[in-house]
Design a protein around this nucleic acid. Structure first.
Lengths: 329, 329
DNA sequence: GTGAAAGCGCTAACAA
DNA sequence: TTGTTAGCGCTTTCAC
């Protein structure tokens, strides 16, 4: 049996293709009875409109794409999960592409999006992406791009990210409020802009709040490095609290805390900036400043819809973080 | 500037559309010089073939879809991550859809896939999906479906899943080999078929291997329930090892182990069936039987390519698990 | 070696 | 209220 098309339906009903087409979309021109008849047949014949034909004809699609370094990351996971939900609610579909943090693959993915004629692209760029000139192609209909999380420095693009300064500042203030004055701060790779932002906001906030505070800073690029930092520096430092810049670092720190048989929060307090999953893995649960992908996704989607509607507007959005109290401080 | 089409290129070169089309795909009929000229112009003009037109014309596409309950799960995350890589390497794109474990949304997603005329669907069904009759629609070109992980009971479908029996058996044998004879087994929701399979294989293997073994079984549907089980039953049971059926359960168990200040593996041994991420969050790392989505994804993709090529073949594939030694036993 | 023409399934302006 | 027609961008058969 061949696929059911408008033409087939029209033949079966002795109507023209356009009448069938209009009946199916409740065009007011078509009589009630005809509409009825057409819809009935379409239902029993299980007619499925051909999306390719529609997209070709109307020169637009209900497909969006998201490009991320890797999905194997709590933050992107929560972002994509929320985004997919939102996208589906609005009748769109979501194409998922990973760059593996490789600018070359990122470019290839961008090309695939263009060829696939997606209506919009959400992208968190690789750590090596500097120039975004070739993200946009000339033409009447440039594809709207919403940058999120890892965004380029360029001014002239739409970007949505976590307010790193705010998140780090909240962490610092919370530590001060709990009267923690001897702090070990474990941060990520020194080169990354996210590390720089969080580090400077953290130290600055501490400094302003209390001149007495003692702060030791270390960098760790992986769970294991973070583990090693605590294992090797804790004894000398004797901190009363440890600040973890990210989930990865938190995991390493907690591994060490357990190995050293330290009690949280009695022996040492813990606070982290986190997506929110990992802190619940411990007991007591870790106090954290949440940077969930959830809010980011909602905001990015709203922005995308605005872009598609031709309405650009604000160019940089920062998503607030909030403190989630656990029992670790 | 309008989008570049074959027609535009043809006009600019004073050639016919068909010549341009053929030149671009290295058709042997076309002379070398013409091919050269056409390709050069296409490159500088940044011609991007219109995928919708191609798909409409050829009645096929390079799009695949994956439907899962939720992406917020280590296993699906590793599955999708691997799948996307594979898919991309073969020039396909991957549409991602979540069902939220709701059969209704699952059906809607299936419909979207049909309308989107995807070339194939990977799906892990909801826990409530029983009938898969409406997964297939009549027609000349039914969309190939590869079921994975949570697969329907029906015989007549292609399914790929973890070998639950093998995984549980390995866990049991490992416990026996380490001379653990007083075991606490924490399993998931009793209703789920995965729980039933792992539970029966586990108990049966233990029984066969050593009649002396003492085994206490509990069920937990969440991290917290798993935590509670250990907190409330451990003292009475005094097990020398705990078996965790899944990552979720492992997390709860470890929370309790830490709360109770037990040393692993001295006070109690731990073994789990896991995707492989979570076991590295602890020190010593947890010994686990891996059920990573990685192998599953590769296998599912190969199967899909075979289906698309018209070659169906084997109908059920079980993916082996292997023991990954940590220091927790 | 190249071009003309038909047609994939659909929408929408224009006719009737 | 319904039908006719053109055409979206592409592939492919058949002429030349």
């Amino acid at each position: 049996m061949p696929d059911i098309t408008l033409k087939r339906l029209a033949e079966m009903l002795n109507l023209s293709i356009s009448t069938v087409s209009r009946a199916l979309k409740d065009h007011p021109d078509i009589s009630k009875e005809t509409r009825q008849k057409v819809k009935e047949l379409a239902a029993v014949a299980e007619y499925e409109p051909n999306t390719y034909a529609i997209n070709l004809r109307t020169n637009q699609s209900k497909e969006l794409a998201v490009i991320i370094p890797t999905i194997a990351n709590d933050f992107y996971q929560s972002f994509i999960s929320s985004l997919e939900e939102e996208v589906r609610l609005y009748g769109y579909s979501l194409m998922m592409l990973q760059s593996g943090d490789d600018p070359l693959i990122e470019q290839q993915n961008l090309k695939r999006c263009r060829q696939g004629r997606v209506s919009g692209i959400f992208i968190s760029v690789t750590t090596k992406t500097t120039d975004i000139g070739n993200f946009y192609k000339q033409g009447d209909h440039p594809i709207p791009i919403v940058f999120f999380d890892k965004v380029p420095a360029a001014e002239s693009c739409i970007k949505i990210c976590v307010d790193d300064v705010m998140a780090a500042a909240i962490a610092a203030k919370t530590l001060i409020a709990k009267n923690k004055l001897n702090i070990l701060g474990v941060f990520g790779n020194e080169e990354l802009s996210i590390t720089k932002k969080r580090l400077s906001a953290f130290t600055e906030t501490l400094r302003v709040a209390n001149a007495e505070v003692r702060l030791a800073i270390y960098h760790a690029g992986s769970i294991n490095e973070s583990f090693e930092v605590v294992m090797s520096k804790l004894a000398r430092q004797q901190p009363d609290a440890i600040f973890c810049m990210s989930d990865e670092i938190l995991i390493g720190v907690m591994k060490a805390v357990q190995t050293l048989q330290l009690r949280v929060p009695d022996d040492v307090g813990i606070i982290a900036i986190s997506e929110g999953q990992v802190p619940t893995f411990y007991y007591p649960q870790i106090t954290y400043i949440e940077t969930s992908g959830f809010k980011l996704a909602k905001s990015a989607f709203v922005k995308m819809m605005a872009c598609i509607a031709g309405n650009t507007g604000t160019h940089e959005i920062k998503i607030n973080s909030t403190l989630v109290e656990g029992g670790s401080l």
